[in-house]
Design a protein around this nucleic acid. Structure first.
Lengths: 142, 142
DNA sequence: ATATTTGCAAAAGGTTTGCAAGACG
DNA sequence: CGTCTTGCAAACCTTTTGCAAATAT
């Protein structure tokens, strides 16, 4: 997901491309860690010091509506965001030390889902799956 | 997990058994829906009108430390609680209409975990898995 | 030119903390 | 009794809203 893909999508959806929005998108795109709104705000300030925290929230809402963001649930940080990298169904594996996130898509939960559905009588609509642990770098520098 | 199991555990851990605590435990035990702190507060008030919301928060912290509670992540309600029913490793399937939760424990994620670990280099420590959908009752009364 | 967007200030929620009064054991 | 617990008030933190000024198209 390149910056221009994102900005094109903005324009196509009728949003204006302001320097604030660009700065926020830059920050979120530049890393694959999950960031809280406040962390995004802090990083954007380096590049665009006049930014308001409110604008960050508004841009996050906008990008969420456009389905360009993912949310990560790990470790009580349920509102932390990540630029969506693969477009389809996928999951995250999150480093609990540095926050880095890697995506994967082959979850093979269909079989389990069928078993659970049959056992519980639920009509299953979706699932939430995340792994957490230490990334290669963090697990080596103990 | 019966009430007396819980209260015994409280005493064993040196906590006092106050009527407020009992009322809160009663409310959480009486349902297997996931409840927010405020929802718990509202329900406890019916039985014990003088209860303070602060006390609810404190008892939730206490029960969490004793590992008697589970948290549910579904639908942006990341701080909503549930009395822990099975003692070991388990997961939840949550009804998105009525909030009812059913537990299951056979997740069989070991194989997937190994594959993901090999592919990403992560040392995987745990996982978060939840299903959501409609329970039998809610899926019938559409 | 005009509708959108921004940033401030303030409101609104949710959660935590300090403290004096009250209650369990 | 002494210590733990409660509830109030207030602090705190996060998120949302109202509004006038600024701006992208």
């Amino acid at each position: 997901m390149t910056i221009s893909t994102i900005t094109n999508q903005l324009r196509r959806s009728g949003y204006k491309l302001t320097p604030q929005r660009l700065a926020i998108i830059n920050v979120i795109s530049s890393t694959h860690d999950h960031l809280t709104p406040h962390a995004i705000y802090e990083r954007v300030k380096r590049e665009y010091p006049a930014i308001g925290l409110v604008t960050v929230y508004r841009v996050l809402d906008m990008l969420t509506k456009l389905e360009l963001l993912c949310r990560v649930h790990a470790e009580n940080r349920c509102r932390s965001y990540l630029m969506r990298r693969p477009t389809g169904h996928h999951h995250h594996i999150v480093c609990s030390k540095c926050g880095k996130v890697v995506d994967f898509n082959k979850c093979n939960l269909e079989r389990l889902q069928k078993i659970i559905s049959r056992a519980t009588g639920f009509e299953i609509k979706g699932h939430l799956l995340e792994f957490d642990g230490l990334c290669r770098e963090c697990s080596h520098k103990i």
